[in-house]
């Protein structure tokens, strides 16, 4: 008799833990052929607020870590992902119905993207900051600092798309709440397992699954959220609504760009969109 496999319950990822939605709601996720894959958690407003609270609590210590340390942790995520690549390839094939070669390409790209960002952690300040030659006897210096808690609307790509928007945000010291790909939410939770075992502190990344249009507005208007990445929002009306929601607390908003090729080497603006430039003056004298 064939062995019945042990199936995974897909839950949310909040504050380093995997809770079900407090609402008790789930939604059915189908595979590429229309068959049942799993019941994913349908995150609620309360879940979104819990996630923001976790991200806010994690921000002071994550942003205060040395850039070297953050870089090592992002690299560690790449290492652990490499070790679990077979699982991700299988999940991508099941969810998206792509070929094995394509799935491998996505996993490769995700791992490589993490390595790319890992190296940025201790270089971004040198590239985006610097000395300012003011007309007077002053030391004057600008440095980038993370904006705070960033709400990220992840694009469709279940692994590579998510990594492309997640890594730049946390590399620079922000913490985040991600609304995972609505079509392919399961792999994001598997990625959360990787994050949870890669020394990424609890609360730095929080992942919610469920409809963007329902969860997004709660995050866009939340006063403890400082930035909003709309990369994964394909509906222009929803993008406008979310940006309007963000206006009341003047969040930094990264609008969706349908022409963006995520597979290409990213521009710095994925990082700088959620960085603040701080300029410090001090007189010089004897």
């Amino acid at each position: 008799m064939a062995r019945a496999d042990v199936r995974k319950t897909y839950k949310l990822y909040i504050n380093g833990q995997f809770p079900r939605s407090e609402s008790g709601r789930t939604f059915e996720v189908l595979d590429a052929k229309g068959g049942f894959l799993a019941n994913a958690s349908h995150a609620s407003r309360k879940d979104a607020r819990d996630a923001v609270s976790a991200a806010r609590s994690a921000f002071p210590s994550w942003s205060a870590r040395t850039a070297y340390n953050r870089g090592q942790i992002i690299y560690r995520v790449a290492e652990v992902l490499e070790g679990r690549r077979a699982q991700f390839e299988a999940e991508i094939i099941a969810a998206e119905g792509v070929t094995a070669a394509k799935a491998r390409q996505y996993v490769d790209a995700a791992i490589d993207r993490l390595v790319w960002y890992a190296g940025w952690a201790d270089k971004i300040a040198q590239v985006t900051g610097g000395a300012n030659d003011v007309a007077g006897p002053f030391f004057n210096h600008s440095t980038p600092e993370p904006s705070g808690v960033i709400a990220v609307m992840a694009p469709q790509g279940p692994l590579f798309g998510l990594v492309s928007v997640l890594a730049p945000v946390i590399t620079t010291g922000n913490t985040c709440v991600v609304v995972a790909s609505e079509a392919y939410p399961l792999t994001s939770i598997t990625l959360a397992e990787v994050l949870a075992t890669s020394d990424v502190p609890a609360g730095v990344v929080n992942i919610l699954t469920g409809p963007q249009a329902e969860i997004g507005p709660w995050l866009a208007s939340h006063l403890d959220v400082h930035g909003l990445d709309l990369t994964g929002v394909t509906d222009p009306d929803l993008a406008r609504t979310l940006e309007e929601g963000a206006a009341d607390s003047l969040k930094r908003v990264r609008r969706p760009d349908p022409t963006e090729d995520l597979l290409a080497t990213p521009a710095l603006d994925r990082m700088t969109a959620f960085l603040e430039i701080k300029t410090v003056w001090h007189p010089m004298g004897i």
Binding site: N132, N140, S147, I277, T279, V280, W281, H282, P283
Partner: peptide, 30 residues
């Protein structure tokens, strides 16, 4: 966005100026 130590209200075209949080976004100068 701007921290003046042992001085205050200094402005220079080479020095970026602008806020965090609800003080706005983007920098002017530099």
């Amino acid at each position: 966005g701007v921290v003046w130590s042992n001085t205050f209200n200094r402005f220079d075209p080479a020095s970026p100026f602008g806020g965090y949080k609800e003080s706005g976004h983007g920098r002017e100068g530099g």
